[in-house]
Write a protein that binds this DNA or RNA. Structure first.
Lengths: 215, 215
DNA sequence: AGACCGCATTTAACGGCGTTAATCTTGTCT
DNA sequence: AGACAAGATTAACGCCGTTAAATGCGGTCT
């Protein structure tokens, strides 16, 4: 095998214990390390140390540092999508659904700032090089598009390019999240309650623009 | 001298040529390197090489890698503020002024993506540790607050917490910029013209929400 | 049983990085 | 001339990502 192609590992002989394959073990350690020290302090060697394997072992399961980080980012998108899906199920009113989606995004950012940075930051240079990562991201974005589309059908959101409106909403909550976790709003947003309050207000502002017909 | 306190260097003997002191030379090289390779590929040793000095020379002028990057980030905020000030002078109508401020922000992001990342990213851990950096950032944000405040006075923007409205506007354009330069909108925004179009439309959306009275 | 093969991992090494300590140079002041 | 400090250098430490070569090791074929 030409190496790095596995990622799934060969399937266990069916009798073997459900012990996580080293690949999964590395992913878990990587996620923990990212959460602890951020994308900067992340080191492939430290991941290997935590998984109690040699420095070069990860290279059998991942093409390199970037591929391992891509796995972490993918995990992040899956978790974010799950949070968003939960909101979509719980809240059916289109207006409130959009608003709570925004708050959920900001809450995710506050709970997992380092993950968000890996998901969007420049550590992973070409997202298209990691198809499963791209797919996970698209799935999360798809939930937002769906919410906007539902709002349009219900007459609560203006007609027009659905994805473009979704990009606007995404940009707003993403920007707010970025500013918060990068400490740019520390005076104004010292704790999570303040962040949620601000997220709610800001989301409402955009929502008023979304309901009207654009010129 | 206990080192790293200079940053201004001693003043030239008045007859010496206006050759940039090594501190400035390093800053210039650092900015160029950041622009070329991004915050990831940035290396103190490479900066020293480009300035044709030894590896340890920068430590006389800057406390370390982070301090040098803080200088680059400060430069970025100054340039951004200049761009914004130009808009404020050129466009007097409050509505158009706000809109063009948003477009200018996105344009800056597209022109200097790596700078933006340094300005906001986690490479500089504590912005308060670099007071001149913080001041430069506040100055740029102040221009936005001023624009919102003018809009309120002119009756084009709803009353209410001015800074909070400014944060909303900032978040929107910052998020859009981040998504674009991180390649998240590559399908939708392949070139700069598309980016400006999108920025205009998105800014208008929020603006409609800003004009109305919030609940 | 014994030879063999391919997956999984280790050991060892290369070069680059940030940072620091010790050292040298150079110009200024007394 | 000699003291002195700013400014720069050399050399070293330990970390990093990555790669090549050597090693273990479970299953397969004869």
């Amino acid at each position: 095998m030409s190496r790095t192609a596995t990622r799934a590992g060969r399937r266990r002989p069916a009798n073997a214990p459900a012990v996580a394959s080293l690949g999964d073990e590395l992913l878990k350690a990587a996620a923990a390390l990212v959460a602890e020290r951020g994308p900067q302090g992340f080191s492939l060697r430290e991941v290997a140390r935590r998984a109690r394997v040699s420095e070069a072992a990860p290279y059998w399961h991942f093409a390199g540092k970037e591929a391992l980080l891509a796995g972490v980012a993918e995990e992040g998108f899956v978790a974010l999508a799950a949070l968003m899906a939960e909101v979509c199920e719980r809240v059916k009113d289109p207006d409130r659904q959009l608003q709570e989606l925004g708050v959920a995004y900001v809450r995710f950012a506050l709970a997992h700032p380092s993950h968000l940075r890996v998901m969007f930051g420049p550590e992973i240079r070409d997202k298209n090089a990691h198809p499963t990562l791209k797919a996970a991201g698209d799935r999360a974005f798809g939930l937002l598009v769906r919410a906007i589309s539902d709002g349009q059908r219900a007459g609560r959101v203006q007609q027009g390019d659905t994805e473009e409106l979704a990009v606007a909403a995404w940009a707003l909550v993403h920007g707010l999240s970025a500013l918060i976790i990068d400490g740019q709003l520390r005076r104004r947003v010292p704790n999570e309650r303040a962040a949620q309050r601000l997220a709610t207000k800001v989301t409402k502002l955009l929502q008023m623009g979304l309901t009207r017909q654009s010129s």
